[in-house]
Design a protein around this nucleic acid. Sequence first.
DNA 1: TTTTATAGTCAACCATGGTTTACTAACTCC
DNA 2: GGAGTTAGTAAACCATGGTTGACTATAAAA
Lengths: 154, 154
Amino acid sequence: MDKTNFTNQKNTSLSHQLIKVGRLINERGLDSVRDVFNLPELKQSHLDLFPHIDFEGTSISEISKRKGVSKQSVSKLVKEMTHIKILSIKTDPEDSRSKIVFFKTSGFYSIQKGLEELVAIDRLISDHLGNKAYNSTLENISGLIDFFQTDNRK
Amino acid sequence: MDKTNFTNQKNTSLSHQLIKVGRLINERGLDSVRDVFNLPELKQSHLDLFPHIDFEGTSISEISKRKGVSKQSVSKLVKEMTHIKILSIKTDPEDSRSKIVFFKTSGFYSIQKGLEELVAIDRLISDHLGNKAYNSTLENISGLIDFFQTDNRK
DNA sequence: TTTTATAGTCAACCATGGTTTACTAACTCC
DNA sequence: GGAGTTAGTAAACCATGGTTGACTATAAAA
C-alpha cells in the first residue's frame, strides 16, 4: 500500500470519519452554547455535565455516578457552573446533606436557551441529511454504540 | 419540554450519538494499536502525529506546520516515539539542521500495522452494519463533515 | 562576510480534567 | 444513642498535551 492509498484510507474509512464528525459536532456545540450564553468561560467539562443533570434537579453524587467520575470532581465543576450562573443549588428537603443541582429556568441564562442551541445543531444535521437519512443514520450509530459498549474485544 | 423529553433528546439526538461513537472508536483504536504494537506507552498524542508523517519521512518543522502546533511540542513527541521505536530519525542530507522523521519500516512497528488495525475496526463496523448500511452511513457522515467544515455558522 | 532566518532542543510554565486523602455533617440501622 | 454509611468539600497531587523564551547550529540573503 503506497502513500496515496494510505491517505485515502485515512480519509474515507467510516471509523475515521466518525471520529472526525464527533469532534466537529462537539466543537460546534461548545462554541454555540458559549455564544448564546455569552459565557466564554464555559468549559468542555461543564458541557459534559449537561446530559447528567435532570430538569428537576440532580444531586452531586448522582451526577458523579452517572458520569463515572468522583464526586469531588463534580462538586468542583458544579461550583464553577453556579459562579457563571448556569446552575442553581438547593438543599434537598428530604436530606440536608444532599444538594440538588438544577439548571436556571428563568432569566437571561436560562437553560432553555442553551438547550435550544444544542437542539439547533441537531436540526442543522437533520435539515442537511433529510428525515429518512437522519433516522437511519441515528439507528445505525446507536447500534454501533451498543456494539462498542458491550465487551467484544478480542 | 418536560424531563422525559429532555432526557430523550440528549440520549437519542444524532449529534449526541455521533460525539459518543467518535469517542468510543477513538478509544478502541488506541487500545487496539497499543495491543498490536505491544506498546502500552503509546499515547493519544503520538497517534495523532501518524497522519502527518509521510512514508518517505517528514521534518519536525513540517509536521508541526501540518498539525498546527509548535515544533517544540512535536520535537518532544518525536523523541518519545523514537524511544519506543516507532520512529527513526536521520539528518536531511540537503540541510543538516533538519531531521527527517520516518516510521520504522521493518519489524512490528511499521505504519502498515497501524493501518491494519484501523482497518480492523472498520471491518468490525462493517460486519455489524452490513455493507449497504455501512456505505450509506459513510456517505451521510462524510456529507456532514463537509457541511460542518464549510463556514456556515450564523 | 555579516546579518537574518530557519531547524531543532531544553526547560519552565500553563490549562484541563481529573484522582486521592482527609475531613465535616447528616442520615440510617441496630 | 452509638456505629457505620453517605453527601459534600477542600487541598494536594497527577497525567496529558500543550505554550513560551532562550539557546545552538546551520543555511541563506545582503
